[in-house]
Design a protein around this nucleic acid. Structure first.
Lengths: 333, 333
DNA sequence: ACATTCATTACAAACGGTTTCATTGCAAGC
DNA sequence: GCTTGCAATGAAACCGTTTGTAATGAATGT
């Protein structure tokens, strides 16, 4: 591979001049610029990013830590991050953490050893290691898909409590009073927020909250199946299931079908996230739209701001959600 | 950030010794090693990857080009690539090409400018730019999810023709004779291979192939909906739909439901890929299992071999597929 | 005609490690 | 006792850019 020296020699100038031909062409005379460019072209010269980045002490790379890249919601967020990254000439190193704290800790190291300029974390694991002693965050960091307002670092997400409340209100407005909850993992902030929103709406219309009608499991279709199986065997009188994710809802639909329920006649089911498959369920899933791509875009924009300005804004961006009414929730007479 | 000089000074040795303490500790005496490590620890010294990589002229990074990261099949392949990458201490730069050739060309450049050591491409765009003049491939390159045996570069995938034939044979064995085909994009090798496999099986039992019963569209749920709508309005007598992907099948199921078909009684539908959602369809989707994660793993292993050995094996790894029988295909009387 | 300014361009240091080669000191072999 | 060999370590070169500073020369002003 040709390098800057070769070009300089061929063009009869110094390496510095060649370098400036790229970084600030206005500093060169018309004729020299032309000569340099021609020489570079002839030798097919491409500056070594490795050398450039080493000099600049920047990597132009952002690390994205994803609990599970095969999860469609996360994949869409990554997609949004990508779009903005490309626009701003950043590369993305994607790390599938598998929800493993050990792998996540590597993220900090990658920034410290100059392999990445910053970290975007999807999901809510707080990564306490990243933020020693409650001080200002040590490295450029943005958390997406979790808008924990108590966090000390910038976050991008939705108002889970409000969004869940919106869906619960809708179920109530359709006449449902005995509503089961298929929750995700109990120890997640997301789960607690959505549960709180659900309770808010019940309280607002004086419907008592039935603690027994809540089943926790993983945020997955398999989790939805398991949770639904347990709940339906325990509570036979429910008219609706409030599911904390579309995947959970899809699992619940499978279980309900298998148990002979006719949907939505015998049981209404609502989801959360609005993944594409929900539209293709039978019946099509009523859910809450979470702007996944946009969350990714905003997160990456924030990261760009941080990297450019070196300041760490303490914002908590809350993006709007929307009720998506389809056919899986029925209006009771 | 502390650097090697600081550690050397504190330990009372030369930078070279500190360097060796990491790269080949056996070269140091017990006491020096201990002293160096203690000093490094005290200063929280982390060698700068940027400097190391610059010296070594390697990036320890592989570029993965994905047509659409939000596609579950691709996401699973990436997941498999990830696993092997982590094992071998490689980082992954993931680029969502959006099926755009311009972005894909950037891949070559990233290797040429030392931003990545090699490229794994998902999907089948041939990227002729990568392989100028039919010579041995210029940069470390592996293509996954497409086992085009005519390619000059290593590939990992399945035998699409055989797999499609297997499914077609199954449909035939269940008594279906008037089978419609919902194909993906017509100009893709994958599509042509699967169609060929379909024809193979028909020919084997002397069932004539009906050219009119093929509809092409994108490999997506929306594409499946559109294609199914067109096909069903044109051909009323079909007993089964052979879909070239699960997403297409899921779209077709939606369309069939909407048109009042009772599935699978009135119409059998088969998919291809075995994505997780197929299991949760109504009815659960009969499909062909494609080992997506494994394809990713093999692709990355191949890449590791190439990067280590500098040789570009001309293998075409064919991974096994499996018929997954669920409920969306009915046995005709 | 000479000083001054400005536009161009060259020179050389710097970035932070790794590695080659040379040096030192000590133990073993004759 | 002197040579030889080996283990341990240091000095310095090197990787390919960028950039601060100096040098050059032409143009301008007086």
């Amino acid at each position: 591979m040709a390098q800057i020296r070769d070009v300089a020699k061929l063009a009869g100038v110094s390496p510095a001049t060649v370098s400036r031909a790229y970084s600030d062409p206005s500093k060169l005379s018309e004729s020299t610029l032309h000569r340099v460019l021609a020489a570079a072209d002839e030798l097919k010269y491409k500056p070594s990013s490795l050398a450039q980045l080493f000099r600049e002490k920047r990597t132009n790379t952002v690390l994205v830590m994803v609990p599970d890249i095969a999860n469609v919601l996360f994949a869409r967020v990554v997609s949004g991050i990508e779009r903005v990254a490309v626009e701003n000439k950043y590369n993305l190193i994607v790390s599938d953490t598998g929800d493993d704290a050990a792998i996540e800790a590597v993220g900090v190291e990658m920034v410290e050893t100059y392999r990445a300029d910053g970290v975007i974390q999807l999901g809510e694991r707080p990564l306490s290691e990243l933020h020693p002693e409650g001080e200002q965050c040590a490295i450029p960091f943005v958390q997406a898909i979790s808008a924990d307002p108590r966090g000390r670092y910038p976050t991008v997400g939705i108002d889970d409590r409000k969004a869940a409340g919106m869906m619960a209100s809708y179920l109530l407005s359709q006449g449902h009073r005995r509503i089961g909850v298929l929750a995700g993992l109990e120890n997640r902030v997301v789960t607690q927020e959505r549960l709180a929103g659900f309770k808010d709406s019940l309280a607002a219309v004086d419907v008592p909250f039935d603690e027994v009608a809540v089943e926790y499991d993983t945020y997955s279709m398999a989790g939805g199946e398991r949770a639904a199986t347990r709940l339906l065997s325990r509570k036979g009188d429910l008219t609706a299931l409030f599911c904390m994710s579309d995947e959970i809802a899809i699992g619940a639909i499978r279980t309900a079908h298998d148990q002979g329920f006719i949907l939505p006649r015998d049981l209404s089911i609502s989801g959360f996230d609005n993944i594409e498959f929900g539209k293709y369920c039978t019946p099509p899933l009523t859910t809450v739209m979470q702007p996944a791509e946009q969350i990714g875009e905003v997160a990456m924009s924030l990261m760009c701001d941080i990297l450019r300005g070196q300041t760490m804004p303490k914002t908590h961006e809350i993006l709007p959600t929307e009720l998506v009414v389809r056919a899986s929730v029925q209006k009771l007479p």
